[in-house]
């Protein structure tokens, strides 16, 4: 095989093992060819460096944030581990604010936008989630509300309610979460919605309604049931 063909086959990834050896030998012995080949490798690497940039940035971003999983219960499990519950057992009289503060933590964004095909609204959705993740709950609530008009889906409504609650508008948050038929729609967010509604009532000092929702969570078989049970005990 001639030199040019060897070179072409190398760059188009068509070399056989024997040809690779042949090319290697040629590079050792033929200085002119080696120079040409060296220049070619440099060009290849310069082009690759340029092309790699966006991919590299993508991978670097992955390092900066924890991986997103699509299963909310994995997050719920992680949250359980995060939050200390010790204080509840040593507190003889329930302090509703305290119970709420101990247990309320804004639900992580578990929605992977790239999986969804409804591209035209993607900009609005992305913005809403970005606000949510930046803890700008008031703005996030408005963005999710707007998004829900265009895309009436459970997760949009869920994050709308959550944004209100996380932003301190507990009553409005409860209202929002209570008005969606989670169970009827067989939504993935049914249990977490109950959990947050329950916590919302804890904050408002309404232990009857709090108990109703938290009991539902505690009776279910999910990673939040144990925590719901703990809150119920704290309320007793």
């Amino acid at each position: 095989m001639n030199k040019e063909a060897l070179k072409e086959n190398y760059f188009s990834n068509r070399l056989s093992e024997a040809e690779f050896v042949q090319l290697e030998q040629l590079l050792e012995t033929d200085a002119t060819f080696r120079e040409e080949f060296y220049d070619a490798l440099e060009i290849q690497q310069a082009l690759a460096g340029e092309k790699h940039r966006p991919l590299k940035e993508r991978l670097q971003k992955l390092d900066q944030k924890p991986a997103r999983k699509n299963h909310w219960y994995l997050y719920a499990a992680a949250l359980v581990a995060l939050i200390s519950i010790g204080s509840l057992f040593y507190n003889p009289t329930p302090d509703y604010e305290d119970v709420y503060a101990t247990h309320f933590e804004a639900y992580p964004n578990v929605v992977s936008l790239t999986n969804r095909s409804d591209a035209p609204q993607e900009g609005v959705a992305k913005e809403a989630f970005e606000l949510y993740e930046a803890n700008q709950y008031k703005e996030a609530a408005a963005a999710f509300q707007e998004l829900y008009r265009q895309r009436p889906e459970d997760y949009v409504h869920f994050y709308y309610g959550l944004s209100l609650m996380a932003g301190g508008e507990t009553e409005a948050g409860i209202d929002a979460l209570e008005t969606y038929p989670w169970q009827e729609e067989n939504s993935d967010f049914t249990t977490v919605a109950d959990w947050y509604i329950g916590l919302g009532y804890v904050k408002l000092g309404n232990s009857t309604d709090a108990r109703f929702y938290l009991q539902k969570v505690a009776d279910g078989e999910n990673s939040l049931s144990k925590r719901a049970q703990e809150v119920l005990e704290a309320l007793d």
Binding site: F11, S12, I43
Partner: peptide, 9 residues
């Protein structure tokens, strides 16, 4: 680009 990066003959 096609020759050195995309591996085209």
């Amino acid at each position: 680009e096609l020759y050195y990066y995309n591996g085209m003959t």
